[in-house]
Design a protein around this nucleic acid. Sequence first.
DNA 1: GGGTGGCTCATCCAAAAGGGTGATCGGAAA
DNA 2: TTTCCGATCACCCTTTTGGATGAGCCACCC
Lengths: 152, 152
Amino acid sequence: MLLRYGFLLGLTLSLLAWAESALQLGWLPAPWYAAVLGASFLLLGWQLGAWAQQHRTRHPVSDPLSLQESPITQNPGGLLIEKLVDPAAPLSDREREVLHYLAEGLSNRQIGDHLFISENTVKTHLQNLYAKLEVQRRTQAVARARDLGLIP
Amino acid sequence: MLLRYGFLLGLTLSLLAWAESALQLGWLPAPWYAAVLGASFLLLGWQLGAWAQQHRTRHPVSDPLSLQESPITQNPGGLLIEKLVDPAAPLSDREREVLHYLAEGLSNRQIGDHLFISENTVKTHLQNLYAKLEVQRRTQAVARARDLGLIP
DNA sequence: GGGTGGCTCATCCAAAAGGGTGATCGGAAA
DNA sequence: TTTCCGATCACCCTTTTGGATGAGCCACCC
């Protein structure tokens, strides 16, 4: 989002600079320059207003959207870490069971009750599951699993 | 809201008109006129941008999700309760949008960013959504909505 | 012009979920 | 036999989510 606004801001300023020099060189008649000037300021104000509106009362702590933070995907060398949980690895039996109940909307405690394991263990399975599916949250995991055909 | 923007728009245009006449009358030096012009357009763009940003997804012309008029028509039991949120009520536009992003696994903050509303508002929509779907958690809501055909 | 409903936002508090680490155990693989 | 992996569980801490409530604004309808 910031990128978008930054890009548009830069575009506007570039347009402004171009119009300035074009006027100097005589390429651009003065009325046209005025029009470009007005349009640029209009666009600039637009972006600023939109940005301000969006950040009016929001905590600007974390970055806006961009799901798929690519949690493990970099690792260009590929040899360094690689050990913890391989995203390409198939799900284990337990993980598939947990995923099944996950998709039905059960809480961790309920999943544990169904599988006769503790809630902590469910959380561990979920963490491995998230790593394999390359997601961060349970709803994401459900969506991803559905995309992958892991869930009917 | 419209009043506010209308007022500011009028103010800006008045300022513009005043600067125009002031220039004509020689009250205002040309550089000052240019400055006022730029500032006016900036303000104008600001307001327009803010307005557009706020109404960007406010009332989408086409429904993003399939309209399901009264998906939960049954109200087993009484008709007399009719509390704050009626479970039998159909989902509002906003609730359907939130549900859509919910099913994609976005966090409340991300949903808010996509819809250009605050995280708190997302939470409010979600609470109403939960009441209508008669669930307690987001994963449950997704599962229930899928059962009801609200989500492909 | 007064309700109504939708949308917005805020605050406070509690519960759930997520992330990290470390540990044990049993079976399968090297 | 040793190593590895899946499964199990615990602890800590942070973040997210849920629940309740109050409020303002606006469009629409009666």
